[in-house]
């Protein structure tokens, strides 16, 4: 169980995390979703005491991380690939970590097996690929068989097999009753792995809840309507229970109504329609919609990956 209360972190005059509160419960995989620079890594570093909160408090199983007598047993953390000295072998790195907690060499061997590092365990980490570095980070996190796992972008750099492996691993760990908190900037990855989502942007929680609820909340079907009499149509649709936004004159974005009902309403009132299109947004589109105001480093040229068109402001909550 991870509990954050009004957690804030400022670096100089830049606020990385802005008074966030959340609870991550045992027995579930909780996804921490947000664009790069949203504050995910900072939050995770604060959980394990690497960064000191400017204000607020975060506890793991009821205590601040540093107050636990056996920290690695409480939380296993993968905070970034290669938080490791490149001159040491994978086995030596794990042995060093294990030594602090008097964990047996046998257990070191076990996590090497579990993470598929057996063939490279005696090689120096400096020559590892990003994927192998991730596996070593996960091995390190699993070392003391912790009750809580914090994995920052664990699938980064992994091949498809590795991604599948991480997915199965975290699901299994959650099924064993552990708390699993993993971050990603990939909505599609989260949709397949997490039970719950915590969506963060610009240091604030945007939304949270069970994965399907979050997706439905964002993706509630939108119908795009174009009509010379849009101004007359809008109040009629509103009366019928729709939520209307007008991205430009003569166009409406309608949520909560079907295209069929909109078409019939227009016909009944002799309103001409030039366009009536139901928008099918992808998961990524939902995510873009959620975080579009919260992206810290937006590329100017890359169009959002959506089909057939991006959801406009009507979709943000």
């Amino acid at each position: 169980m991870i509990e954050a209360h009004d957690l804030t972190k400022r670096y100089g005059d830049k606020t990385a995390v802005h008074g966030i509160s959340f609870t991550v419960r045992p027995g579930t995989v909780t996804g921490f979703l947000g664009p790069n620079g949203a504050g995910k890594s900072t939050t995770m570093r604060m959980i394990v005491g690497l960064d000191e909160p400017t204000s607020g408090r975060v506890t793991v199983n009821g205590k601040r991380y540093a107050e636990h007598r056996t920290p690695l047993r409480e939380v296993g953390a993968l905070l970034e690939a290669k938080a490791v000295h490149p001159g040491r072998s994978a086995r030596a790195h794990l042995a060093v970590m294990a030594a602090t907690h008097h964990i047996s060499p046998k257990r070191v061997g076990e996590v090497i097996e579990m993470t598929g590092l057996s063939t490279v365990a005696n090689k120096r980490v400096g020559g590892f690929s990003l994927g192998m570095g991730q596996r070593l980070g996960i091995a390190s996190a699993l070392l003391a068989d912790p009750q809580t796992l914090i994995l920052d972008e664990p699938v980064n750099g992994l091949d498809p097999d590795g991604v599948q492996w991480v997915r199965n691993l975290v699901r299994q760990l959650a099924a064993e009753g552990r708390t699993v908190f993993l971050s990603s900037h990939l909505m599609s990855e989260m949709a397949q792995t997490a039970d719950h989502l915590l969506v963060i942007g610009k240091g604030r929680i945007i939304t949270s809840g069970p994965v399907q609820e979050v997706i439905d909340g964002v993706l509630g079907t939108t119908v795009r309507v174009r009509s010379p009499q849009a101004a007359d149509l809008a109040p009629l649709l509103q009366a019928a229970g729709g939520t209307i936004t007008s991205p430009e004159p003569g166009a409406l974005e309608v949520r909560g109504l079907t295209g069929e009902l909109i078409g019939n309403t227009a016909l009944d009132h002799h309103i001409a329609l030039h366009e009536l299109a139901t928008q099918q947004a992808s998961l990524e589109a939902a995510y873009m919609a959620l975080t579009q105001d919260a992206v810290e480093y937006r590329s100017e040229t890359a169009p959002p990956e959506t089909s057939p068109e991006p959801i406009h402001s009507g979709a943000s909550r």
Partner: peptide, 23 residues
């Protein structure tokens, strides 16, 4: 609450023995 397929009492520890550890 956890979704049904993975539902477990929050405090349940895995059945296998803990890895001995002491800092």
């Amino acid at each position: 609450t956890p979704r049904p397929t993975t539902q477990l009492a929050p405090s349940v520890r895995p059945a296998r023995p803990l890895v001995p550890a002491r800092l």
